[in-house]
Write a protein that binds this DNA or RNA. Sequence first.
DNA 1: GAGTGTGAATTCTTTCACAGCG
DNA 2: CGCTGTGAAAGAATTCACACTC
Lengths: 226, 226
Amino acid sequence: MGSARSDRISPLAVKRLSLYLRCLEELAQQDQTTVSSRQLAKALGLTDAQVRKDLAYFGQFGRPGVGYAVQDTVTRLRVIFGTQKDWEVAVVGVGSIGRALLGFKGFGQRGFRLAAAFDKDPAKIGRKIGGVLVQSAGELAATVRKKRIRLTVLAVPAQAAQEVAEALCRAGVKGILNFAPVRLNVPDDVAVVPVDLGSLLQQLSYFVTAAQAGNQTHPGVRRDLT
Amino acid sequence: MGSARSDRISPLAVKRLSLYLRCLEELAQQDQTTVSSRQLAKALGLTDAQVRKDLAYFGQFGRPGVGYAVQDTVTRLRVIFGTQKDWEVAVVGVGSIGRALLGFKGFGQRGFRLAAAFDKDPAKIGRKIGGVLVQSAGELAATVRKKRIRLTVLAVPAQAAQEVAEALCRAGVKGILNFAPVRLNVPDDVAVVPVDLGSLLQQLSYFVTAAQAGNQTHPGVRRDLT
DNA sequence: GAGTGTGAATTCTTTCACAGCG
DNA sequence: CGCTGTGAAAGAATTCACACTC
């Protein structure tokens, strides 16, 4: 109960916080022990005030006149993100994207361990991809429960996504990284982060189109949706 | 000169606009001819006022009492995004992610054509993946120019990203979908949309952690960063 | 009645600017 | 001094609410 008072949470801030963590981890690796809000801000394309506000939200982080202790802050941020210890992650749907993620090393470095994979195509079941055994969709609920998997990557075709998401929720999953281009309807206690690659490319093409065509008509296009 | 006056542009609105387009394309396929802001809003988890404002920004789209003509609006949105005709896209870096994107059919449906792929690993050069020939990094500039490629997917390791991005910009690329977990420094007329998968998973784990641990301390966690 | 477009009101975020600590 | 933490100010984005159209 004794923890910091909680005024308001800034949704976008979470995104930035994860950038701070990434940056601080790099600095730690270079044995830098201390960093100022200014430095962080410059590295990430933000303002120093923004960085301070974000960090201060979770309590006192820095020391005036000195800055932020790199290693310390990394530790505290990891606690905030819950990544002091690894999360087990399941990949559901082993198409081109699912397969790529199973072979992707970036997750391991950030505290995520690919612990299971599922597909309903018999040709894929039983194979090992990136060291992970592909199981049948039918085994999903049991495996998720047994391994206490809370986070999943959903990479099934759009038509199947809602149905599979519901199965995941029933099995106790609490977070879904959704690559299917549909909005998922899930219970309130389940978080969904959408990653619609088509939509992202489209945003790019918008900025490119707006920049060239409407050079004058859209003077204020911003190009960073970090 | 004769086009609509341009008050202000809403950066986040672009993201939503691309959702409207996706949704409208689906409706068109189901032969629905007309749709109200309310319906769109419900399907995408937004408010109706939001939908109207966004669409109205580009001029009169809807008819009072009726709604928006689905097919018409799709056409107009495509013009706004510049996707009436296909864009040629290059994939740079054919690791696990690059390979996946080459095999990903979602792009084609949204007006993007994978037209080239590059890597510096000799073992990959000369192969065809997803119907696309992998070329050497050295051929990048020439090919990008010859095929007039404006959009690229950057999927090289983090350390190489900045350098490759600069080469892309020099070759005339105007938009980069960046999968490398680093902030790219590019000229003002080049758009970058970052896709940091590790960071996205981390955001998920934040929400899951906050929801369970801080049930009371963080009452207002939002779970949709659509 | 149903539904858009839009100024005005509200709410959310970011930036400013400065008191105070190391 | 340099740099944090933080109220207060400024700036954006969202929602309200209503005139007006079909």
